[in-house]
């Protein structure tokens, strides 16, 4: 189809790998985690999957997950690049 106007198509990483925005990285202490899922529920960018793995390619490091974790199982750790 001739491109007549800006029609964008859905794709992962439409705005690039936003993981590079991060200053602090969430690190989960799996011993403490009770898999309540609140971190995934509150993640604005849906980078925490059902198995509660955090996709660091896209995690912006906002820290909501750490702030909301009732078990304090997530620590925000300074990125070292």
């Amino acid at each position: 189809m001739r491109e007549r106007l800006a029609l964008s198509r859905p794709k992962d990483g439409a705005s690039g790998k936003t993981g590079t925005w991060r200053t602090f990285r969430p690190v989960v202490d799996k011993e403490t985690c009770n898999a309540c899922g609140l971190c995934a529920q509150y993640c604005p960018d849906a980078v925490i999957d059902e198995e509660l793995n955090i996709d660091l390619d896209y995690c912006k490091g906002c820290g909501i997950c750490a702030n909301e974790c009732p078990k304090e199982a997530i620590a925000m750790v300074r990125e070292e690049r």
Partner: peptide, 20 residues
């Protein structure tokens, strides 16, 4: 076939659509 209609569009693409 979900599409985003008229999103933020950079200069190079914008020019093409104006030309069209």
């Amino acid at each position: 076939n979900p599409l985003g209609y008229g999103p933020v569009t950079g200069p190079a693409d914008y020019v093409r659509f104006r030309w069209d």
